[in-house]
Design a protein around this nucleic acid. Structure first.
Lengths: 160, 160
DNA sequence: GACGATACAGTTGATATCAACATAAATACC
DNA sequence: GGTATTTATGTTGATATCAACTGTATCGTC
């Protein structure tokens, strides 16, 4: 007969340590935050955030993509993308045009101003990415990307 | 003499493909978003988001940690943590108390209500995490965690 | 062509994220 | 013991994230 009453409804500290050391949600969030901050910092002179760079770069295509397809590429909710477009549109870096054939769809177009800014951002991306990636041993970055892609696509497919 | 005028200030499409396939910022963000959505979905019956679960779990310790130490653990800006505490405090899951010795510091305390909710969340975490992790081959999750930790800590140290 | 099902996107509300700035307390140095 | 520095945190403003709901257009079936 233990004298301690609330032995139920208690998460053992060992479980906390286990989650801290194993949770892929926590681990990916932490690294995503850190990497985003590093790119935010080096891109700041251009007035760009890391996510805005990724978005602008994804629009640098021969044919302007639809909103939905870009959201899929970025693994981002469509409504999040809609919100993220607003500051870029306000600053004249992109334009949102209705598709000519399908009047539901919106095409995301990189303007000349957007292209010029992206051009200036590329060397910053190259330099920052080299620094970030240099933390990993040779082959480590490729291995990490492969594991991340496996995790992403296998979990996306399971949802259908 | 090429007939195309603006050969300067143009990011080649090949560079876009290279960034799409190699950028660790994009890749970690995508996976972080996807994993967070999966945990958000399964934790929703408890009224918790994935980040709130990680935060509550990090407070399940013998001695209540300070705000700054938790921000470091989560690799999160301190002001972000301050903001994230508000809904949890409002719902009575945590309490913020001034440290007795150092009157600058704040101790984050998990309440009984918070502990009880965390207890109910643990089996959901276990189940969801097993599903997410099952996308990777045997040993893949450990390898991924190791690479993520290397990336995180080696880049954090470089900043000092 | 009518109609139900499906697909694409916008709006709103809540939370998450961080920089810049500001406040207050502890510490170090003289 | 007084002053400069460092440390721990809060506040504000801008952007990021997603669910729930809504509107509208296309498609498939008859």
């Amino acid at each position: 007969m233990s004298s301690k009453l609330p032995n139920h409804e208690i998460v053992p500290f060992e479980m906390t340590l286990f989650v801290r050391d194993h949770c892929l949600c926590l681990h990916t969030q932490r690294v995503a935050r850190m990497v985003a901050r590093r790119f935010d910092e080096t891109l700041r002179p251009l007035g760009l955030k890391s996510g805005q760079f990724s978005l602008l770069m994804s629009l640098n295509r021969p044919h302007p993509p639809t909103l939905g397809s870009v959201a899929d590429l970025l693994a981002m909710d469509r409504t999040t993308l809609t919100a993220n477009l607003k500051p870029l549109e306000r600053d004249g870096l992109i334009e949102v045009r209705p598709d000519e054939r399908d009047r539901r769809a919106r095409r995301l177009v990189l303007t000349e101003k957007g292209r010029a800014l992206l051009f200036r951002a590329v060397p910053i991306w190259t330099s920052t990415h080299r620094d970030v990636e240099s933390a990993l041993p040779p082959g480590g970055a490729d291995r990490l990307r492969a594991d991340l892609n496996t995790l992403l696509h296998r979990n996306e497919k399971d949802r259908s």
